[in-house]
């Protein structure tokens, strides 16, 4: 265990607007650490989503483009194709990637676009005020599923890591979480590995990160990480679903 701990250089000093206990902040830190450790900040371009993390460009100190809702993988494709030397990553929530942007992420992964996607799965729409997302759990109450997600009406939650790993094109698809320190350390490794594959120009990489949304789940931060562990992890199994090796 490293005895010292510092804010990574690629993370700005800006106060983060996220709600108390929201684990976006942890994921931002892991991405910033990966960028620092690979020494790629000056040639990295991030794509911000539409959602709580739209202002990720205030927190990670590299070039950014701000995508329309769900379109980040297409923008990343545009950049990576014309400037393959740039390191490109998208940072997206579950409404952004798994709902409106499903077409974009599936085809980018299938083309094997050599960028990295950080996909934050917190089972809800955060910024717009807690609506049901494709990843909302069965029976989970949201502002648009007040009686709980009725799987007979709207189907089961979508497991992106499994779905994308069924594509034949090689890639690195993994699911991690940041709800406990032990998981955070593994998530860091996976995120760094995803970026490393890109630095090698090897393949498309996506890290799905099970995350919390205390405010819209109607829980305290501590209750939220417990709920995520108890309810989400059995359904969203952690681990590597596909590796390019």
């Amino acid at each position: 265990m490293a005895k010292t701990f510092q804010k990574p250089e690629s993370l700005t000093d800006r106060y983060m607007h996220y709600c108390p206990g929201c684990t976006h902040g942890v994921i931002h830190r892991l991405v910033a650490e990966a960028i620092d450790e690979l020494g790629i900040r000056k040639r990295t371009v991030g794509i911000a989503p539409v959602g709580c993390a739209v202002m990720v460009y205030d927190y990670i100190a590299c070039d950014f483009q701000e995508a329309a809702h769900g379109r980040a993988p297409a923008m990343a494709t545009g950049i990576k194709r014309v400037r393959p030397d740039l390191i490109v990553f998208t940072y997206q929530g579950d409404g952004d990637l798994a709902s409106i942007g499903m077409g974009e992420i599936v085809h980018a992964a299938n083309r094997g676009e050599k960028f990295t996607t950080i996909f934050v799965n917190n089972a809800i729409y955060g910024m717009t005020g807690g609506q049901m997302a494709p990843t909302t759990m069965p029976g989970q109450k949201t502002t648009t599923s007040p009686m709980g997600r009725n799987v007979d009406e709207v189907g089961m939650p979508i497991r992106i890591a499994e779905l994308l790993s069924s594509l034949v094109t090689p890639g690195y698809i993994t699911r991690q979480t940041v709800i406990r320190p032990k998981y955070i350390l593994k998530a860091k490794e996976a995120i760094k590995r995803a970026f490393a594959y890109q630095v090698e120009g090897k393949c498309f990489s996506l890290v799905e990160v099970v995350s919390t949304c205390p405010t819209n789940w109607g829980m305290t931060p501590v209750e939220a990480v417990d709920w995520a562990e108890k309810t989400m992890l059995p359904y969203y199994r952690l681990g590597d679903f596909k590796t390019p090796e």
């Binding site: 265990m1 490293a2 005895k3 010292t4 701990f5 510092q6 804010k7 993370l11 983060m16 996220y18 108390p20 206990g21 929201c22 684990t23 976006h24 902040g25 942890v26 830190r29 406990r180 320190p181 955070i184 350390l185």
Partner: peptide
Amino acid sequence: NYCGLCCIMCPDVAISITE
């Protein structure tokens, strides 16, 4: 004991340990 678990868990990177 400066194990740093709090630093790792903190969503706001508000805790640091320096030598």
